[in-house]
Each structure stands twice: as structure tokens, then as C-alpha cells.
Amino acid sequence: MPKLNMVQAINLALRQEMAKDKNVLVLGEDVGKDGGVFRVTDGLLDQFGSARVIDTPLAESAIMGAAFGMSILGLRPVAEIQFSGFAFLILPQLEGNASRIRARSQGTMSAPMVVRMPYGGGVRALEHHSESREATFAHLPGVKVVIPSGPRNARALLVAAIRDPDPVVFMEPKHIYRAFKQEVPEAEEVGIIGQAEVVKPGEDITIISWGAMLRPTLKAVEALEAKRAARVEVIDLLTMSPIDARTITESVKKTGRCVIVQEAPKTLSMSSEIIALINDKALLYLEAPVKRVTHFDVITPYFGRENLFLPNPDQIEAALIETLDF
């Protein structure tokens, strides 16, 4: 099996889906000749031509709106927003139309489209290039929100997103675009949207994270397990919406303890929702309050301070210990 980084794995998903289905096309700023600022769409223009790999004018709302129009007539556009910090410009189209067309038309129309966007910190970028705003999108009924955590699931989930009958926001943790490689089979692999993955089973405590936070989480778990007898169950959320309540609930019922790690600000975030969900479904199984390790409710600082604000393995390990010892 070839070993690919996440950029290459996403490129593979796009290439294979475009080869397979003529209705799949990509559009966005610099996606053609430049292959995207992160090279995710590299080589697609040469292989599929400019009618299917569209370098658009610089206007996020129209990228989203035009992709929506294409999807209405049966195409499966994959729109790229260059950085998620600019994705607020797509909200009027996403919330206003793509998320609603199925309801608005009573199921007679739909918007099978994907919006890809790199998100998150850790790449020493400028303002608006480091945020984690997944909860903003996950709050919208009618929108699915997916965040892969590595090359293999990025590829499989993007294939699933492209084939999904509903609009999918696909957020790519750019911090780990090239951080590591995984074996990614050339043969088709289709992820399941709405399903979290138990990355590592355990009995004593559950830890939930997603995207770029999975790696520091695993590091903390490794450090903890080297010191203590506790066995940690690690859940990679993968889909923010619709959330996999079952996997979370089953795990927390088993362990009675839970820590959530996220790169996003704390208030009204995915972790808030997960705690509410545990409250609904597994409160009486809890042996300790659910603990969170998050960014702070501040404007994401520039990279001079950025790392001070991102969860790190030491903080995660401390949260695990505190919750175990409660």
C-alpha cells in the first residue's frame, strides 16, 4: 500500500471520484494551475481540464452559490474555500439555501455538494488562517460536518462526502496536512459519515477528540498509560454533525469518565454539545464531571502566541488524571 500524507490522500479521493463520475468537479480560488495553495488539487487540471477544475474569481459567496446551483442540476461540485477563516462569507448561501433546499422543496430538490476548507492552527499563518469554527457549521440543520484526523480517513470520508446526497462541510486540519503518512489503499475505500471511531479501546476513562487534536491526545494517553494502570478509550469523532451519540454514550456508560479535547473556543462548542448529550443519555453512569481541554474564548492570536493557546499533551494528561482521581 502506498504511504500518503493527508494532502496526497485527499488528492487521491478527488482524482478517483472525478475519474469515476463525470458530474464531480472542483472549483475555487487557485485550485487549477496552482493546485490549491496547499497543493490538494495538484494535477487535477491537467488530468480533467478547465471545465472540471475551475479557477474561479475571488468571491466565496458566489463560489458557494454557483456550486449550489450546479448541484441542483445534478452535478456534484466540490468547492474549495482557501481557508476556513474566509468561510463566513459562504454562510448566507450555506445556511440560506444549501441547508434548506430539501425542506424548502419538500424533498423534491437537494444540494449534493461538498465545501472543503483547511482549518485550525499550527502553521504560523496570518490572521484568519488559524481558526476552528466547526461548531458554527454543525449548528446548521441540513448540513453535515466532517473532520478527518489522518490521511486514510480523510480519503475515505471525502469519497463519502462527495457521494452524499446532502451538503457536506469537509474541514481539513491543515496542521497535519503533511505531518505524517499512512498507508492508503489505491482501491476504493468509503467512510461512513455520522460514525465516530474508537481508535483505542479502554475501560477506565473515555477521551474524545477530532482533527489535529487526535495526535496530542494519543500522546497524552500514551504518557499516562506508561505511568498508571488506567486504560483509556480514545474516540475520534470524525463527524461533527450528525453526531454519533451511540459510540459516545456506549463508551461513557462503560468507563464512567470522560475528557473532551478540542482546538475550538470553549463556549457553545462541540464539547458543549457532547457534554449535553452525555447528560441526556449517560448522566447516572458518570463517576466524575466531564472535563474539557479547549482553546479559550479569545480571538485566535497570531502565531507569536498561538501555541500558548492550543491544547497540548501535558494539559490533556493532567485532565485525564484529574478526572480519573475525582
Binding site: G69, I72, L75, N97, I101, S105
Partner: peptide, 27 residues
């Protein structure tokens, strides 16, 4: 029944439908 008559449903956000028309024409 709108789609069956090649009509987009009523769209209330002012101007929001113009990019849709462009995407549809492209398609």
C-alpha cells in the same frame, strides 16, 4: 412541484439567487 416546472422555489434572501442561476447555467 416547482422543480417539475423548471422553477426554483421562492427564495427570500435578496440577491442570493443570482449565483444559483449562474451555477445552473454552467451545469
Amino acid at each position: 412541484l416547482s422543480a417539475a416546472h423548471h422553477l426554483m422555489p421562492i427564495q427570500v434572501i435578496l440577491g442570493s439567487q443570482l449565483p444559483h442561476a449562474v451555477g445552473m447555467a454552467y451545469a
